[in-house]
Write a protein that binds this DNA or RNA. Structure first.
Lengths: 109, 109
DNA sequence: CTCCAATACGTTGCCTGCCAACATATACGG
DNA sequence: CCGTATATGTTGGCAGGCAACGTATTGGAG
């Protein structure tokens, strides 16, 4: 898989893993990796700025937790984020059917 | 559809429309647009450099045609191009199932 | 006949958005 | 002790498609 493959679909991925419940950044990375069967390995330079942006946009809300001396920033979906996720999902479907129709014209959609 | 959506999948699109027979650049643009139901509108600044690159890579072969005073550059797949197309198609399948698995974990693959 | 749209080829420079590399700190097993 | 896992972030770079531009022929509408 090309390193840069998630370009344009990152927000959907992040919102999607957070749908199952609040999660912190590092856990999001491992969750994406696990769900994708190891295919998608997001980097910290990718997700931390993205999570920040999604919070600024109102799609996420974050709270700091303390586990002993350890601090975590826990993100959860807002209602707006849930709507955003729905939008991302339909955008993904449109995208794949558009490319798919050109790439595999015979194949059933 | 985001302007920049085909990023990373362009080569597959071009090779794919040429699978049905030789075609010139302008016709490729309209073919992609038609096959995608109008969703994908490639620009000349996108495809002409790409077609050149694919020829340099040995995936395409081009010949100039003259229609009256008009000149056309007609591209066709080479054997290597056909193999490249197969590679692009399986890469597309891997890509969509990876993203899809994260974005729609419930959905059947 | 004139003019605009469609047909046809191409180039240059920009911008977006993810990545690589780096920086920092705690926790834990061997 | 020390490497690995856990955890959060920043900075700079660059790939690659797009926007804007430039050129020329052809055909149809008015």
């Amino acid at each position: 898989m090309r390193a840069d493959a998630v370009r344009g679909h990152l927000d959907g991925l992040l919102l999607s893993v957070l749908e199952s419940g609040p999660m912190h950044g590092y856990a999001i990375i491992t969750a994406v990796q696990r769900r994708s069967g190891g295919a998608l390995a997001l980097r910290t330079g990718t997700i931390y700025p993205a999570l920040n942006r999604l919070e600024r946009l109102g799609f996420l809300r974050s709270t700091w937790q303390s586990i002993g001396e350890r601090r975590r920033r826990c993100y959860e979906l807002t209602d707006s984020g849930r709507r955003g996720l729905a939008t991302e999902r339909s955008a993904w479907d449109e995208f794949t059917s558009a490319i798919g129709a050109v790439l595999n014209p015979g194949r059933a959609t």
